[in-house]
Computed example of a mutant assay.
Amino acid sequence: TTGDVHVIAKAIGIVARAHGMTELSKETGIKRQQLYRALGPDGNPTLETMLKVLPALGLRMRIEAAA
C-alpha cells in the first residue's frame, strides 16, 4: 500500500465519479467543484471531507494500532 495522499484521493475520486459527482454532492453537502478538486490527481482532501464522502460511497476508513 501507499501512504501517498494523492494516490488515495485519486482512487477515491474514481469511485466517486462512478457513483456520480452530482449525487455525491447532494449526499454530502459538498459542492461538485470542491469534490473534483479534493478527489483529483493532485487532491488533498480534508478529514472532514473524507468523513462525509466515504460513507456516502458505502466505504469506511479504519484505524488500527501499528504492529
Rank of each mutant, 00 (worst) to 15 (best):
G13N: 08
M61F: 03
L24V: 07
Q34I: 09
L47D: 01
L57M: 05
A67E: 15
Q34G: 14
T1F: 10
V53Q: 00
I63T: 14
M61A: 09
A65W: 09
R60F: 07
D42H: 14
G13V: 06
K26W: 08
R37V: 03
L57N: 01
A38C: 05
V15D: 12
M50W: 07
E27L: 15
V53F: 01
G13F: 13
S25R: 08
P45Q: 00
A56Y: 03
K52Y: 08
T2E: 13
L54F: 02
M21Y: 12
M21V: 13
G13S: 05
E27Q: 15
L35F: 06
A9N: 00
K10E: 15
P41F: 01
G43S: 04
D4R: 10
K26G: 14
A66C: 05
T46D: 05
L54Y: 02
H6E: 08
M50R: 01
G3H: 06
A67K: 13
G40W: 06
V15M: 07
D42V: 08
T46G: 13
Q34S: 11
L51G: 02
T2C: 03
N44Q: 04
A67W: 11
I14T: 15
K52P: 06
V15P: 01
G20H: 06
I12D: 00
I8L: 12
M61S: 15
L54K: 01
G3E: 13
A16E: 14
P45C: 06
L54T: 05
T46S: 15
R60L: 06
T2Y: 07
A18C: 09
M21F: 14
A18T: 08
M61D: 00
H6T: 12
V53G: 02
A38E: 08
L57F: 04
G29F: 07
L47Q: 07
V7C: 00
T46V: 00
K26T: 10
A67V: 14
L35S: 06
E64L: 07
E27T: 10
V53W: 00
T49H: 04
V15W: 00
A65I: 15
A9F: 03
G13E: 12
K31A: 15
V5N: 11
I12N: 04
G3C: 04
D4G: 02
H19W: 07
I12R: 09
R62G: 08
G43L: 04
R37K: 13
R17V: 12
S25D: 04
A9K: 01
K31N: 04
T46R: 04
I8V: 07
R60D: 13
S25G: 14
G20F: 03
H19E: 11
E48T: 10
K26C: 09
A18Y: 06
R62S: 13
L54G: 02
A56P: 08
P55V: 12
A38D: 08
V7T: 14
L47C: 02
A9D: 02
H6G: 07
L54V: 03
N44H: 06
L59F: 11
A16G: 13
I8D: 00
L54W: 07
E48M: 09
L57E: 01
K10W: 04
Y36G: 11
G13L: 05
D42S: 14
A18D: 14
I8F: 10
A11D: 10
